[in-house]
Design a protein around this nucleic acid. Structure first.
Length: 457
RNA sequence: GAGAAUGUAGCUCAGUUGGUUAGAGCGCUGGUUUGUGGUACCAGAGGUCGCGGGUUCGAGACCCGUCUUUCUCCCCA
């Protein structure tokens, strides 16, 4: 009984045409990263569980794919923990390794482990797949690619400016028609919590505020009360909803709101510095927006927080990032500040597909196909094909003397650009017919001028 | 992790209150055209109706389970 072919949920196969488009996407991102001085690194697909667990919060831990111990290692299973109903501990004893959940935490591990081989500030980029045991949905996969650029070892806000420019450069290059870079600062969120007198509830507070545009003002207030935030704090949150207008106006409002919070004012200062420089330099296409409800990745971000959304498309954020002052501290290296961004390649791909933004040249097919007329003609074709290849021209000789009609259809289906017809007559006359498949025009060439002609096309 | 929908030919989908041999368009194969594709005409192949149970004289249709995909929540790229 033949097995029905299938792949696990949330994973995908990529056909040649899709690979061509994905390659274009990755190359575009890579080119910009390099343009700003970032160098590529790679890390293993899986890490020790202990490296990843606990870095993404409770929810994150649940979504980490764990790798079951094999062979003798299975004996390490902590049956006592199972008996005591301590499932997390039992699970950890069963799985010592796990697939990476993002590229940032492995990078922090990498920096600490190789600190003596690196020169700081260290700028790296990394384009590799990550895995999450999430429920698949539109734009959500269990295996997807992240394209990260991070700077560690510098707390200069110029890094933030540079990363915003990279967002703008890449997405403009990819011709995304309209997108917004949203900017916030963890210190501002801390300031809000402080002003409300709920400094230790910052996560509940910001997670609720983050949903403003989704569930509305009332929804947020309800959620806050539900989470046990005091009424007086909720009262203090309310005015935030009225904060609208230009970035400068919002900054002004926040300045008075956070006047009594030292950390909050520090956040304002940082944000303003970054915005002012970006404004003075200008952005190509991006719309830079101070969004005080933006509260992603709270587990390790300490300063700037970024998120990018494509406008007029039904898709979650396509990029994210932020500053983390203490990520390497978790692996024993204190006082090293990092800031980074991540492009969600698969989501950007989906957006570009939806908006039909891939240039036609990306999926252009093979340059030349030699039609096979039979044994006596094909050897001349093989010689000519070899000559083309020596000149870096991609070509192919059809492997059998099938009907011309069938060979032409094959050329057509593969979007071949030019077809060479070299049959009995041409062989006798020592020439060939070169046919342009898109225009249908054809011309007769002698063997000597053939390669030169193709090099000019 | 919670809730809801979905699955019929390679693809997009019809299929009436359960009733004989399960349909269409596109695609595919062959021919019209033994040296010309993307347009036309003719013919043909292709389905254990996601998988496993159950109800029934009888199930593509109803019930249960399971998997996939999609949507909402959660979270996120």
């Amino acid at each position: 009984m033949a097995q029905k072919p299938a792949i696990p949920k949330g994973t995908r196969d990529f056909l040649p045409n899709e690979v061509a488009k994905r390659t274009y996407l990755f190359e575009s991102i890579k080119t910009v990263f390099k343009r700003y001085g970032f160098a590529p690194i790679e890390t293993p697909s899986f890490e020790l569980s202990s490296t990843l667990m606990g870095k993404y919060g409770e929810e994150g831990d649940r979504l980490i794919f764990r790798i079951l111990n094999s062979g003798e290692k299975m004996r390490k299973a902590d049956l006592e923990a199972l008996a005591n109903d301590n499932l997390p501990k039992f699970a950890s004893s069963l799985a010592e390794k796990a697939l990476r959940y993002d590229l940032t935490v492995p990078f922090a591990r990498f920096v600490v482990q190789h600190q003596h081989e690196l020169t700081f500030p260290f700028k790296r980029f990394q384009i590799q797949p990550v895995w999450r045991a999430d429920r698949p949905q539109h734009g959500r996969y269990q295996e997807f690619f992240q394209c990260d650029a991070d700077v560690v070892g510098s707390d200069s806000l110029l890094c933030e400016v540079e990363l915003i420019q990279i967002f703008d450069d890449v997405l403009t290059h990819l011709n995304i028609p309209s997108f917004s870079i949203k900017l916030n600062n963890r210190k501002i969120l801390s300031g809000i919590a402080e002003v409300c007198g709920e400094a230790d509830r910052i996560i509940d507070l910001t997670v609720a505020i983050d949903k403003l545009d989704k569930i509305g003002e009332e929804g947020v207030l309800n959620e806050l009360s539900q989470k046990g935030i005091s009424d007086s704090a909720v009262e203090k949150i309310k005015p935030l909803f009225q904060f609208a207008g230009s970035n400068q106006e919002k900054l002004q409002l926040m300045r008075s709101y956070l006047a009594n919070s030292e950390v909050g004012m520090k956040g304002i200062e940082e944000l303003e510095y970054v915005m002012n420089i970006v404004d003075s330099m200008g952005l190509k296409r991006a719309d830079l927006e101070f969004d005080l409800t933006l509260a992603r990745g709270l587990n390790y971000y300490t300063g700037a927080i970024f998120e990018v959304k494509a406008n007029n498309v039904n898709m979650g954020s396509i990029c994210g990032g932020g500053r983390y002052d203490d990520l390497t501290g978790l692996f024993g290296l204190k006082g090293l500040s990092g800031v980074g961004i991540s492009f969600g390649a698969d989501r950007i791909y989906d957006v570009m597909t939806e908006l039909n933004l891939f240039p036609a040249s990306v999926t252009k097919g093979l340059k030349v196909l030699f039609i096979n007329f039979g044994e006596s003609e094909v050897s001349t074709c093989l010689t000519l094909a070899r000559e083309l290849r020596e000149n870096d021209i991609d070509c192919e000789v059809y492997p059998s003397a099938a009907k011309i009609q069938k060979q032409m259809k094959y050329a057509n289906d593969r979007s071949v650009q030019y077809v060479v017809l070299l049959g009995e007559e041409e062989l006798k006359a020592k020439n060939l017919i070169l046919k342009n498949m898109s225009t249908g025009e054809q011309e007769t060439l002698d063997y000597g001028s053939f390669t030169t002609k193709l090099l000019s096309l």
